[in-house]
Amino acid sequence: MESSSLMSEGISLMLFGMGFVFVFLTLLVIVTSLMSKIIIKYEKSAGVLPEDGVPSPSTFIPHHETNAPLQAEADDKTLISVLTAAVHKYRSRHK
């Protein structure tokens, strides 16, 4: 007697639980897509936030000369633009 009520409790928890997980995540999908649409639309007029965020307050003061990392960053940028150009060329040839 008791075992069958345990079974039915189990079944109802399973159905209820699985159902709720799906309902919740479906809602999350809808709300998230909506949020993305609104923000993308907004950012078309307002512009995006800087990728690395607002400069954060920090007590850390680098000791080394800041020249080297800047140089590396500049190198990276050139490298990226060269790579992009190459990919474009490759794609336009292999249509």
Partner: peptide
């Protein structure tokens, strides 16, 4: 590409 603003808003939405 996912913009920074979306990533900030998402945890609040959740």
């Amino acid at each position: 590409h996912v913009s920074h603003r979306e990533k900030i808003v998402f945890p609040l939405l959740l």
